[in-house]
Amino acid sequence: MNATISFDSVLHVVLALVGVAVFVGLNGLLLVYAERKVAGFIQRRPGPYEVGPQGILQAVADALKLIGKQLVRPDRADPLLFWMAPVLAFFPVLLLFLPIPFSPLLTGWDVNLGLLLILAFAGFNVLALLLAGWGSNNKYGLLGAARAVAQSVAYEIPLLLAVLAIAFQEGTLSLSAIVGGQGGMPWQWNIAVQPLAFLIFFVSALGETNRAPFDLPEAESELTAGFHTEYSGMGFGMFFLAEYANMIVACSVCTVLFLGGWKGPFLDGAWWFLAKVYGLLLTMMWFRWTYPRVRFDQLLNLNWRWLLPLGVLNLLATAFVMKL
């Protein structure tokens, strides 16, 4: 990676951003469809099948409906904060895709501190949720925002600890280098060396992306819709897309750190990466349609009493072994 900023590298990043936007948009549609089909499969019903063959156009119809709807702002909501929130929720996520190595050739921006970049920009999400809840002048929204902040801040710590364990082990923050340090076979992946870190990372990622059973900021049976209670149309659509984009990022990072990235037993390439990411995404969906929601104090207890001490112990053990 050349440190000087040339026209080529800027062009490369811009192209990568466009590519990422397309990737996220298409995946949003795909994942909405997949989520509903998975839910249907788990609940012994067909899921969407009216719009297009096997309901494949259902997500497109949903998207068109959301785009076509009027944007409504509650009377006493703060216009600036209210409209800033969905934008802030969605656009920083695109940046998160830049350093992710889909394959050696298919990397937006192979930066040395890729992991740091992702962790830094991922923090934007909680700001967006806070603004949405606070700005919409709704009590359910406010409660949702308060939950979102407490949850995101808490779960970022074990997430970081799990990531640090891998960074210590590999001695780098570059995502490509971390993949490079792993082999093709499953027992050569980091998950074989660091199963505890993987567990902590995945649970924390569920918490960070507000997915069930940790979907407390939008717990619909308690807070109607939590932080996005007042959003409709594309305001809601942006949050929705951001949630799926965040899921993809979390699963991608998980794949890079623990599952050997683009490497597989044969024919290394982006398909291995995508297969692993979609596998993790399906696991997340499977959790959502299986488990009840935890209570807020239990959520924080799980974090402070279990994930955090385990993360610290794991990190210490890793550092100790590395020193040997």
């Binding site: 788990i42 609940q43 019903r45 049976s221 299986t290």
Partner: peptide, 16 residues
């Protein structure tokens, strides 16, 4: 009740 507690699937089985 399970729906209230955030589990979406049991109600489908119950309705079955």
């Amino acid at each position: 009740y399970l729906l209230d507690l955030g589990a979406f699937t049991p109600i489908m089985y119950a309705f079955d």
